[in-house]
Design a protein around this nucleic acid. Sequence first.
DNA 1: CTGGTTCGACTCATTGTGAGCATAACCAGG
DNA 2: CCTGGTTATGCTCACAATGAGTCGAACCAG
Lengths: 260, 260
Amino acid sequence: MSTADRPGEAEWLAGYRPGDHDRPSLTVDLAVFTIRDGAFSVLLVERGEHPYRGHWALPGGFVGIEEDIEAAAWRELAEETGVARFDGHLEQLRTYGAPGRDPRMRVVSVAHVAIAPDLPDPRAGSDAAAARWWPVEDLGLDGGDPDAPPLAFDHATVLTDAVERVRAKLEYTSLALEFLREPFSLGDVRRIYRAVWGRAPALGHFRRKVLSTPGFVVETHQVSSSPASDHGGRPPLLFRRGTATQLHPALLRPTGTDEE
Amino acid sequence: MSTADRPGEAEWLAGYRPGDHDRPSLTVDLAVFTIRDGAFSVLLVERGEHPYRGHWALPGGFVGIEEDIEAAAWRELAEETGVARFDGHLEQLRTYGAPGRDPRMRVVSVAHVAIAPDLPDPRAGSDAAAARWWPVEDLGLDGGDPDAPPLAFDHATVLTDAVERVRAKLEYTSLALEFLREPFSLGDVRRIYRAVWGRAPALGHFRRKVLSTPGFVVETHQVSSSPASDHGGRPPLLFRRGTATQLHPALLRPTGTDEE
DNA sequence: CTGGTTCGACTCATTGTGAGCATAACCAGG
DNA sequence: CCTGGTTATGCTCACAATGAGTCGAACCAG
């Protein structure tokens, strides 16, 4: 990050005349996460056009000149994947604008993170060749996985940041509930944590934490009719989302390297 | 360089054709914070040109077509305020792009937060009429303060978000040390917390927390020659920044409403 | 020497964490 | 019907962190 010192720059800056110079293109990108078959998954589209043809990319596209950024994110999601606006969570992640991240021209992208309950399979739209849910684990974001699909642009970086944002927010907010439809059991919630973190929080502590945080979940006084597994098991109590959004103190990720 | 000049653009855009006149302008804004005379303060410039002439604004300006976003932030800071690149912290906050936030045209701004040790008084540059440090408390961000200076654009919103980001990060990172020059005493660190939060963390717990977190601060085995106050007091031990950046568990803001 | 001030080291009740164990309620198979 | 497997719920216990407080050390000014 070296300070740019290009001659003549001070001139057009002095009067704020942005019409006099070239502007970067502005796009939105979305990392839409859900839990598919127990796996923490993200929605990607296969590019059908140059550049990065055949690579997988985050859905996204250009922001209209009078279009709100968040509205553009919802619109692109619908156009590229057929995923309609859902009852979930959408927030800005950060903006990526390194020169050269798009080989065609200067493109600055406002990346977003969305959380959705399990959604139907997407359909490819616009210039996408395909669209599907990818388990995050299969994307080889740590690098070194030969079976990982190639990702377009700087989307591996964006996705790494997005995954970390979601994992971190599970610690200190009630974001996990956005993956679920109501009503849900505490086991459902814990399975979300397990899928996203790779490790489940300790059972005893987890229940105590969720139940003792005011407004995290609200009891329905109902019991699930269908047990969680095929082999039976005690039917769980059912809950709905409460009004609380913050967890104090945080529910920390388990340390250690074991899977469970 | 116009969009139409680039060959083959219609193909790869496949329906999205942001022409020259379709693109938002891209700017950076900076909320630079420091501690001035014990007050948590932010650097603002008084606008000398339309729109919002005479209003106070965050320093910022347009991003060059091949300029990195963070580099543009550093450059604008130097140009508008004379504050040279300092040994401190700069991070992206979020991007603000609501249509209508600039009455002239569509402008999308990538806002940043910077933390600096006490710096010399800025000088007004470019088209700014003045530049000075404002105590955050005097800006009336809660609304309703008739003595608060008028803020340009949506900068009250940006500033509110920036202040909350800094306050929150003091809880779970070692960001407070970025306000200080080395070496510093634990009392210095606690005064940073008091200035930023409005309330100081409890003395006993604060010392225990800072000293028991590995890598937060490093002892110099030196004692300050000049006591902290004019009225004397025991000279404090001096420390330097450690390598740790995260605090686990977090150092939470005191509850309650008292000032101290 | 005395009072005021800041820094440093301790105590103690309360709360939260990490780990475990016991019981309840369901299923499938013998 | 009984048994083992499975999931959910409720509890205990040792330990760590927090919040609040006390006490002495080391300096200054008068």
